[in-house]
Structures are given as structure tokens and as C-alpha cells.
């Protein structure tokens, strides 16, 4: 017997297979459906300029990869927050990181005319504004938490920042024009399909760096399951671990929110879902599992939101919550004794 129970390997393999199926499904569903035979044709033939080819490489594939990156990143951020704060309600939203990103975007879109600077939006201004916003809130929370021993206080400070930023956004939206408001609301609905390959590469690079750091903090995270004092008594460097967790979470959430909008629910629910399925406390197993399930869930949500109804598709933010929240509630209620 070990820290992990042995069945996790077969579970991981099963979910990897499911993941591949979801990728194919995601690529094929849309206003123009692509069959398996079409995939084969596109890959085997050298024709470059067919319609299908164009849709697959310039629209469907970036969208699928964006879904995967968002699912992995948000899921893992949520897991880190929940373990660190020892609170099942913690998630990237709770620390105020997502609100920070939203604030950045709101200031850019709605505040620019108000504050008197040019509304010219170059390619990366939106993600840049969101990242700056996320980083700003995170830095402030970190400075405020420097003298706080109690993690619950940090959590509350994060929540306060969330309220504060949403209040500022309300004020901004009250004074902004209908056009600007619409632009902001579209961003806040979230979209996985607006990314160019250039942006995908950037996101992929940042996320890979973050994931590499995770290997280093898996063991301290396990120790933190017993609380901070026990973790410290077992040799964990709390400050270093805390800083790593905060930076990884903010970079992951900040970037994802910047490029795809605030995708609700995933960061909070995926870790719960994973723990229920895998029944494992070891973070070296949980982290890839959370990544896989996060990717699967977002791929499925994106697939559902692109099932063509009247040639329109649903915003991703609505789909994730509409599909996910009932599932999590059902899982928790049916297994409540073991879980909470």
C-alpha cells in the first residue's frame, strides 16, 4: 500500500482515451460537421486549400487546444487553491484573480473614454490589460497577507477584492456607452474560439512553464493536507510553497481569463469532480487527473455549445455552469457522507 491507491493508473489511461475521443468529437462538431473520413482525407491528401482544411486548421484546432489549455489551467489553479486554503469553496475566483483580470479589461474597454485616453485596441491590449489586472490584485493580496498567519483571512481579503472590483466595474459600466458595454459583456461571456495560433503558442508556453513548477510543489501540497503547522514540522518551507502556489495560480488564471474571458465554475468544480472519481489524495496523481478531467469537461462544454441551433452557438461561460453545476450537486448529494 502506498500514498496512492493502485487503481489510479488504469483510471488515468481510461480518461486519456476519453480525452482523445472528446478531442475528435470537439473537432467534428460545428456548423459544418467533419466526419472521421474527412479527417483522414485532410491528413492524407496534400490539398491545402479546401474549405474543410481551412476550418480545421484555422478555427477548430485552435479552439480545441484553447479548450484543453483552459480546462487544464483552471482545474489545476482550483486544486492548488483548495489544498492551500483547505477550503472546498476556494478557487481562482475566490482569491480575486479573475476579478482582477475583469477589472483590467473593464478599465480598458469602458474606462478608456471616461479617463480620456485613446480607445485604440491593438492586438494584445485585452490580454495585457487582464494580466495586469490579475497581477495587480494578486500582488495586493500577497502584500496584505504577508503579516497574516491565518489563511482564512487571506481568503476573505480575496473575496473583498472581488466585491471591490465588481463595484468598480458597475460604476464604469454605468457611465459607459452602450457600445462599450456590449463589448465588455461579450468578453465576460467567455469565448474559446477567438484565439489565433500566435496566441495559442504564447498560452501553451506559459502554461507549460507553470506545469513544470507543479512537480516541485506536489509533495508540500500533500503535507499541507494536515494543516500548516504539521506541514512545517515535516520540513515544508511554507513561504516558498505559498509564493509558488500564488504565482502559478495567478499566471494560469490571469492568462486564461485574459484570452478567453472569465470561465466560471471550472476552477471550482473540476477538482471536486476529480477527487470524487479518483478518491486519491496524492497530488502527483491528482494534478494530471485534474488536468485531464478539466480538459475533457471544457472540450465537452465547447462541443455542446457549438451544436448548431439556428446557426448560433452558446457562450462557453453559460454552458460550463449550465452543464456542470447540476452534475457536481448530484455527485456531492449522492456521495455526501464520504466527501464532506
Amino acid at each position: 500500500m502506498n500514498l496512492t491507491n493502485k487503481s489510479y493508473r488504469s483510471q488515468l489511461i481510461a480518461f486519456t482515451v476519453l480525452f482523445c475521443i472528446c478531442v475528435l468529437l470537439n473537432l467534428s462538431v460545428g456548423s459544418l460537421s467533419i466526419s472521421l473520413a474527412d479527417f483522414w482525407n485532410i491528413i492524407s491528401s496534400n490539398e491545402q486549400n479546401t474549405n474543410l482544411n481551412y476550418i480545421l486548421f484555422n478555427y477548430r484546432m485552435p479552439k480545441a487546444i484553447a479548450s484543453i489549455l483552459a480546462g487544464v489551467g483552471l482545474g489545476i489553479s482550483g486544486l492548488l487553491m483548495q489544498t492551500y486554503f483547505r477550503n472546498p469553496l476556494a478557487g481562482p475566483f475566490v482569491l480575486g484573480i479573475s476579478s482582477g483580470a475583469s477589472l483590467g479589461v473593464a478599465v480598458l474597454i469602458m474606462g478608456s473614454s471616461l479617463l480620456g485616453f485613446s480607445t485604440f485596441i491593438f492586438n494584445y491590449s485585452l490580454p495585457l490589460a487582464a494580466s495586469i489586472g490579475a497581477l495587480f490584485v494578486l500582488t495586493t493580496v500577497m502584500i496584505a497577507s504577508r503579516n497574516l498567519k491565518n489563511t482564512l483571512s487571506i481568503l476573505i481579503i480575496g473575496l473583498m477584492f472581488g466585491s471591490f472590483t465588481s463595484a468598480i466595474i458597475s460604476v464604469l459600466s454605468y457611465f459607459s456607452s452602450a457600445n462599450e458595454l456590449q463589448q465588455y459583456i461579450f468578453w465576460s461571456l467567455g469565448s474559446l474560439g477567438n484565439l489565433q495560433w500566435k496566441e495559442i503558442y504564447l498560452l501553451l508556453a506559459l502554461e507549460t512553464i507553470c506545469l513544470l513548477f507543479l512537480i516541485k510543489i506536489a509533495k508540500p501540497l500533500d503535507a499541507l493536507l494536515l494543516g500548516e503547522n504539521y506541514a512545517k514540522s515535516m520540513g515544508v518551507n511554507l513561504k516558498k510553497t505559498q509564493t509558488s502556489i500564488f504565482i502559478i495560480t495567478s499566471v494560469l488564471t490571469g492568462c486564461i481569463t485574459a484570452f478567453m474571458g472569465p470561465i466560471a465554475f471550472v476552477g471550482l468544480a473540476i477538482p471536486h469532480l476529480t477527487k470524487l472519481i479518483f478518491k486519491n489524495a496524492n497530488h502527483l496523481v491528482l494534478m494530471p487527473a485534474v488536468g485531464l478531467i478539466g480538459a475533457i469537461v471544457l472540450l465537452l462544454c465547447d462541443t455542446v455549445s457549438h451544436i448548431p441551433i439556428n446557426h448560433k452557438h452558446l457562450p462557453i461561460n453559460a454552458t460550463t455552469s449550465l452543464l456542470g453545476a447540476p452534475v457536481v450537486i448530484w455527485l456531492l448529494v449522492s456521495k455526501s457522507r464520504q466527501f464532506l
Binding site: 500500500m1 502506498n2 500514498l3 483547505r86 472546498p88 512537480i215 516541485k216 506536489a218 509533495k219 500533500d222 503535507a223 493536507l225 494536515l226 494543516g227 503547522n229 504539521y230 515535516m234 520540513g235 515544508v236 477527487k275 478518491k279 486519491n280 489524495a281 496524492n282 502527483l284 466527501f339 464532506l340
Partner: peptide
């Protein structure tokens, strides 16, 4: 005297965490 936070650790896993100062990076 600290109360243990909610977690899904078994008794064996909890005891095994005590070996952390000696185990490798993967525990």
C-alpha cells in the same frame, strides 16, 4: 491540538506523510 482540515487521506496515508523529510521529490 490543531484540528485536521477536511481531506480524503486514509489512516495509512496520514502516517506515511510522516516520512516526508526522508522521501524523494515524488514522496
Amino acid at each position: 491540538t490543531d484540528r485536521l482540515p477536511e481531506n480524503s487521506l486514509t489512516v495509512y496515508q496520514t502516517i506515511a506523510l510522516g516520512r516526508q523529510p526522508y522521501t524523494n521529490w515524488a514522496g
